[in-house]
Design a binder for these strands. Structure first.
Lengths: 244, 244
DNA sequence: TCTACCATGTTGTATATATAACCTGGAGTG
DNA sequence: CACTCCAGGTTATATATACAACATGGTAGA
């Protein structure tokens, strides 16, 4: 009657856990490539649909990123942050009574990588606008803004003077935001960004990644680097969704 | 080149949207039963796995509740609320400088329905403890607490005097909470509850549903009815989970 | 009357197979 | 050198089929 009666996990969950295990053990590092469906079928001896479900759910969970025709990759670990409003850094600095200035490091049209095109919901062939801007508060760099913009949303993006008005303000004027998504992570940036932000080597950095949607399309994806900042966390996840 | 090229939704998404549509139109009302997989296969002319995926994802989204051997049902619409702490109503009232009292309306062992057993993660045959308590602030009813408790977590639950100590306090002492889940909804309660809370007919009521987990198991599920209260909302959902 | 059992319907998982859409790299051509 | 095209690998979806686990209601038997 009161036997523990352990029920084994279904196969697709075993596969899922196995992959999570390998990732946690570092066998397949962040950004690295996970074996393809066919390879997993061979090595684990399960059917394609089973592997597919495991990988699909891992992608839904945010553990993997899958690209059709390319492969499955370990996602960078990110912290979900919720109650973060969309603020304009120029306004923020002005509110503190300080003076804002900006230095445009790059402003050009590029061909996005498959990964970037996927993130922005663009076709691989199409072009994307790329801007890199350093925001300064009283002459000190306080934020590096690396932004990719959908040309369909803002065709005249490259012609703007971003020392006078910020990309965020311009985009807001061109196309009102329908939806926003934020992520926060801490990382040690590469030498380029370290130099641009006057940071010491191996100094960690707070990065907020933000995607916005407008007119039903992805409008832009931006990474905002804050040197020497601290965490601001969201609330924990809840695992279950049903009633009572 | 720049053609709009509309790509039709995959079949399982069409099925999903079709069902959501029917629910929204009220064809299949809340709490009501959705056609079984076999029925949908017949009426829509698609395969079992396709229907299964549509229904499974609707269950993941919280739109449906599925029970093995029983059927699929439209979930009650709920609002996800996040930053809600687990408070003891007696403490809350005491903090306001008022006097708390309680009236135990029911305290007994019951056999749970399939739905309730599923929500609490219990086997259908096993028993469950059920308590209904009215909390009064200065003699006025301010909360009706309808609670189901897992006997494995609190075997002596029925022997307690809940006019002296609240169920929440007792459970917290017996087994510390590992995880909590909250939902908020507004509804017009049935005549029984309306009467017990001294409410007018057709007066809406704020209901907080709370599930707690302890020792790796579901500890209890409670519905807390607050007469005449107003909403406290969480933040909007975000649809996407990937980087940049 | 009560109990034990079974038939049936339901969801959940697993497989084998097929097709489509997509990306990448290399071969071939101008 | 630049460009086109194609072959192969990858993910995504769809079907047909089978079996397992579970709930429910009815039926046969004590």
């Amino acid at each position: 009657m009161s036997e523990a009666q352990i029920k084994p996990d279904p196969l697709y969950l075993q596969v899922k856990h196995h992959i999570e295990e390998q990732i946690k053990k570092g066998v397949w590092g962040a950004g690295g490539r996970v074996p393809s469906e066919n390879e997993l079928i061979e090595s684990l001896g399960v059917s394609k649909m089973t592997v597919n479900r495991a990988l699909r759910e891992l992608a839904e969970d945010g553990t993997l990123v899958r690209l059709v025709g390319v492969g499955s990759f370990v996602a960078e670990t990110k912290i979900d942050i919720h109650p973060l409003e969309v603020r304009n850094i120029a306004d923020e600095i002005a509110e503190r009574g300080h003076t804002h200035s900006a230095s445009v490091e790059r402003l050009a049209e590029e061909r996005p990588s498959a990964r970037l095109a996927s993130d922005l919901g663009l076709k691989q062939g199409s072009a994307v606008f790329h801007s890199t801007i350093i925001h300064l508060e009283n002459g000190e760099p306080v934020q590096l803004e690396d932004r990719y913009v959908n040309p369909e949303i803002a065709p005249d993006y490259l012609a703007q003077d971003f020392t006078a008005t910020t990309p965020a303000a311009y985009l807001m004027a061109v196309a009102p935001i329908q939806e926003v998504e934020h992520f926060v992570e801490a990382l040690i940036p590469g030498p380029q960004i370290t130099r641009m932000l006057n940071m010491a080597d191996n100094e960690p950095c707070l990065v907020i990644s933000r995607r916005t949607w407008a007119k039903g399309k992805t409008a832009s994806g931006a990474r905002l680097y804050y040197p020497g900042s601290t965490y601001r966390l969201g609330e924990p996840k809840h695992a279950y969704k049903q009633g009572i």
